[in-house]
Structures are given as structure tokens and as C-alpha cells.
């Protein structure tokens, strides 16, 4: 913890205030390397890891057994390209995407009203809290066998797994957002004769939006996890998870990694999208509240 942590917060000495021009001059004088060091190191390290992975089979002779389980980034990229070029990925992709969207959509529809209700009513909160805590703490995967018994093998089982994964982060965050709403604003709106519905629409929802969006970000991760595990453990007979599981059984390791890359890309894209949405929806908000 010596002098290398440029990221650590250090209090600016009072005497530094008048020489602000000098500071600005410093910024323009930064070299290209200094300005881009962060990204260069980050991307460089990823490239380095991929290269290392690529050259391992060329410098080490793998035993025949290991050879079966090994793949290289170029092979994964080729497989990925072929899957998209030949179009064989699309039915599986479509299945997983539909299950994801329906499950996430249902969880949003269920979580927002319920979150507002338990946020506004102490009684409902006290009564539902044990169930929410218990279900949120337990990995939802534990319910997969019973979901298969109830909903059968197919789309609906996957949708239900996605739903129970995504609904709790949304519910808990909506609740937290509603509880965080300014009492004063609620009282003002009520004094002006607003109905409960109008209070929810005018005060509660805009106030809890950052919380809900943060919950959505968590929920997307959980939903993708739900797709993977539900499809792995016999929740359906098609989908990207099924494709990966079959491939693992046949030692087609490149297909497994191709599937992982697809899921990784999807979650990064969607989380990025949510961040953009977050920035858009909270443009009107004062800066200190924005960074929830």
C-alpha cells in the first residue's frame, strides 16, 4: 500500500487549489501510453491468455487422452463461425432466446406489482419476508427435479426455471426502491388529492427506477444461468445448453466452448444494454443518486 495506488482516494492539499491551470496542462501533456494504459493492459492480457492457450499444443505434447479434451481458441472460433454460417445454431438459439424472454418477461410482470405491495404494506412485508428470504437464499436449481415433474420436459420447464431465478432479485430491489421513496413527496402528492394509484405512478415508480434497473441487471445473469442449468439437466430437448451438454458427452470440447462464448457475449451485451437504459432513465436525476 505504498505510493503506487493511483486509484486510491487521496485528499487534495488546500494549497493545490490555486494552481488549477497547471493541472489542466498536465492532462494535455499526457502521452498516448499514459492515456490508454488501462485499456491496452486489459485487452493485451486477454490477447496474451488466448495466445498462450493457442500455443500450448505446439510446445507441449499432450498425451493421447488429453488430446481428446483439448481445443484451441482458433478451433472454437472456427466452430462458432461454421455454426452461424451453416445456420445449424439458429433453432437452438431461438429456443433458448424464447425461453429466456418469456421467463424474464413473466418475472418482471410478477415482481414489480408484488414489490410495490410489500414495499408499501408492513403487514404484507412481515408475512412474505420469510418466504422471500428462504427462496432467494436457496439455489433455485434445487427445484429443477420437481419442476420437471410438474411441467414436463420442454419449453415450460425452462421458462419456469428462468422465472424463479430472475423474479427474486427484481422483487427485492423493487421493494428496496419503494421503501427508499421520499415520504415527504408522498405526503405532498397525497395532500393534493392523489389516489393510491397516482402516488405509485408519480412518486414510487420513478423513485425506485434505479433500484429496479439494478435488479434487472442481476436478474439477467440469473436468467441466463437458469437457461443453462435447465437445459443441462433435461429441462428440454433443444436449446444451446442441450447442444453443449451433448457435445461434452461426445468430447466435442470446441462446441462446449462455442456455447460458452455465446452465453458470455449475450450476458455482456444485455448487461451493457441495461446500463445504457439506466443512464437514459436517470438523466433527470441528481448526480449523487445516479450512482446507485
Amino acid at each position: 500500500m505504498n505510493d503506487t495506488t493511483s486509484t486510491a482516494v487521496s485528499p487534495v492539499p488546500a494549497s493545490a487549489a490555486p494552481v488549477r491551470d497547471e493541472g489542466l496542462g498536465e492532462i494535455t501533456r499526457r502521452t498516448f501510453w499514459e492515456a490508454n494504459e488501462r485499456h491496452a493492459l486489459g485487452i493485451g492480457f486477454i490477447v496474451f491468455v488466448l495466445l498462450l492457450w493457442e500455443v500450448i499444443p505446439h510446445i507441449l505434447t499432450l498425451s493421447r487422452g488429453m488430446d481428446l479434451f483439448f481445443t484451441t481458441p482458433t478451433q472454437v472460433a472456427m466452430t462458432l463461425y461454421n455454426m452461424f454460417a451453416s445456420g445449424e445454431i439458429w433453432p437452438a438459439f431461438k429456443f433458448s432466446a424464447v425461453a429466456f424472454s418469456v421467463g424474464l418477461g413473466l418475472s418482471i410482470v410478477a415482481a414489480l406489482p408484488l414489490g410495490v405491495i410489500i414495499g408499501r404494506s408492513h403487514t404484507m412485508n412481515a408475512m412474505l419476508d420469510p418466504f422471500i428470504t428462504a427462496f432467494n437464499a436457496t439455489p433455485r436449481l434445487v427445484f429443477l427435479p420437481i419442476i420437471l415433474v410438474w411441467f414436463g420436459i420442454g419449453m415450460w420447464s425452462v421458462v419456469v426455471v428462468v422465472f424463479i431465478g430472475a423474479v427474486f432479485p427484481l422483487l427485492i430491489n423493487t421493494y428496496a426502491g419503494v421503501r427508499n421513496a421520499d415520504r415527504l413527496l408522498i405526503n405532498v402528492v397525497r395532500s393534493f388529492g392523489a389516489s393510491e394509484w397516482q402516488i405509485n405512478k408519480l412518486v414510487i415508480l420513478p423513485n425506485s427506477m434505479p433500484f429496479i434497473i439494478a435488479g434487472l441487471r442481476l436478474a439477467i445473469g440469473r436468467a441466463i444461468l437458469g437457461i443453462v442449468v435447465a437445459e443441462f439437466f433435461g429441462g428440454s430437448s433443444e436449446g444451446i445448453g442441450v447442444m453443449m451438454n451433448d457435445a461434452a458427452g461426445k468430447f466435442q470440447v470446441d462446441i462446449v466452448f462455442a456455447g460458452l462464448v455465446i452465453f458470455m457475449a449475450l450476458s455482456l451485451v444485455m448487461v451493457g444494454g441495461v446500463k445504457v437504459l439506466e443512464a437514459r432513465l436517470s438523466r433527470w436525476r441528481p448526480e449523487n443518486v445516479k450512482s446507485f
Binding site: 443441462f232 460458452l260 448487461v271
Partner: peptide, 9 residues
């Protein structure tokens, strides 16, 4: 961010 459970097999 990626569902690492996928490498379980």
C-alpha cells in the same frame, strides 16, 4: 458475467 456453470461437464 458468463454462466461458468456451463463448463461443469
Amino acid at each position: 458475467a458468463s454462466p461458468l456453470v456451463a463448463i461443469a461437464p
